[in-house]
């Protein structure tokens, strides 16, 4: 496993239950306070999300279709969510006082900071992969996964920013799921717990919907890559 060295929590939680309430009042003065508290929350709730992430990875190993929960799995996930939401109460009170516009801005900032964190760590991650001898299959695919995750989160953040409230709320729910489910895969890799099948399934999903951003690649390597586009042609002959 190559090192990711996350200094910050890459998850961007979204308090689904609390934010489903109507948020009508406008108190712009709360914005910076809430932002600061959410930052603090994200930093300190790492343990809770770590448990949640372990649970998600376990579910993914049992059934690659992550959305095919049993009642038992669902109850366990709910319990974890409620535990996490409990420590969110004090923030939710302040969020209630904000306008929808202010809330959206707040979450866009948060998602944007997740994207920037991943972006910033990419070159160090690449170096670590290049210096590693003897890869597992997860090593050879993880950089592509990483790039697709950055691209998906970045795309969602831009769309949320450009959307009106109702659409933005739906997109924020999607962004929180992407952040949790697909971010968990990176954490599992970082802890050397990621199975190839899980990575392949989640990577296939991400790549079906988004394109990776253009990262700088050595010129000779880039030219070799451009000549490789037809490689999959011999697959799946039936």
């Amino acid at each position: 496993m190559a090192e990711l060295n996350f200094q910050e929590n890459i998850f961007t939680p979204y308090p689904l239950k609390e934010l489903s309430k109507d948020l009508k009042k406008k108190h712009s003065k709360w914005s910076p306070v809430v932002r600061k508290m959410i930052n603090e929350y994200v930093k300190t709730s790492g343990e809770g999300f770590s448990r949640f992430s372990d649970l998600l990875i376990k579910l993914m190993e049992d059934d690659l279709d992550i959305y095919n929960f049993t009642k038992e799995d669902e109850d366990e996930l709910k319990r974890e969510f409620e535990n996490i939401d409990k420590s969110f109460k004090h923030i939710s009170v302040l969020l209630d006082e904000m306008s929808e516009h202010e809330q959206k801005k707040l979450w866009v900032d948060k998602y944007d900071s997740t994207v920037k964190t991943l972006y910033k760590l990419r070159s160090q991650f690449l170096k670590s992969l290049l210096s590693k001898e003897l890869w597992k299959e997860t090593d050879s695919l993880i950089l592509t996964y990483y790039d697709y995750l950055i691209s998906t989160m970045s795309d969602l953040t831009r769309k949320i920013d450009e959307s009106h409230t109702e659409d933005a709320n739906k997109l924020m729910t999607i962004a929180s799921v992407v952040s949790l489910v697909y971010g968990s895969v990176l954490l599992a890799y970082d802890r050397d717990k990621l199975k190839t099948e899980v990575l392949v399934e989640r990577l296939s999903e991400l790549s079906a919907y988004s394109e990776p951003l253009n990262f700088k690649v050595n010129k000779k390597v880039k030219s070799a890559l451009e000549n490789s586009k037809n490689i999959p042609s011999c697959l799946l002959r039936n």
């Binding site: 690449l126 992969l129 290049l130 050879s140 695919l141 950089l143 592509t144 790039d147 697709y148 990577l203 790549s207 990776p212 690649v217 390597v221 890559l225 451009e226 490789s228 586009k229 490689i231 999959p232």
Partner: peptide, 8 residues
């Protein structure tokens, strides 16, 4: 490392 990204 970049091959899967290019093909996908």
């Amino acid at each position: 490392l970049n091959l899967s990204s290019e093909l996908l």
